[in-house]
Amino acid sequence: MHELSIAESIVDIVAETVERRGAGRVAAVHLRLGALAGVVDEALLFSFEVAAAGSPVEGAELRIEKVPVTVYCPSCRIDRVLAGVQPLCCPTCGTPTPNVISGTELEVTAMEVEDG
């Protein structure tokens, strides 16, 4: 269960941006979360509330955009989106591929702040 320390890092990143930009209350935080990032979203949502308490991010909503695993298929020579996290093979032709194009993201993309 490392979601709490992940949540603390998210709060730190957002709080630093708030300070730098002199922004007001944070209403929402946007996160891109890859299926292979090893982070459970329910646990993260809960941890985020805890981590945000008492910080400039308190009360903000964490909006998680889930990113599916995309692999490059060397046979079809095209990127293919998987339904789950395994098997890492082309869903169309079945060729195994370790070439993960996306799905490991764990990135704060944006925040929404209240004006004035």
């Binding site: 992940i6 890092s9 990135e107 704060v108 929404e112």
Partner: peptide, 17 residues
């Protein structure tokens, strides 16, 4: 009602690590 303003961040959560 207050207006919301979006600010782009684009930072990896484990970027420091």
């Amino acid at each position: 009602a207050k207006g919301l303003r979006s600010i782009e961040i684009r930072e990896r959560v484990l970027g420091k690590n």
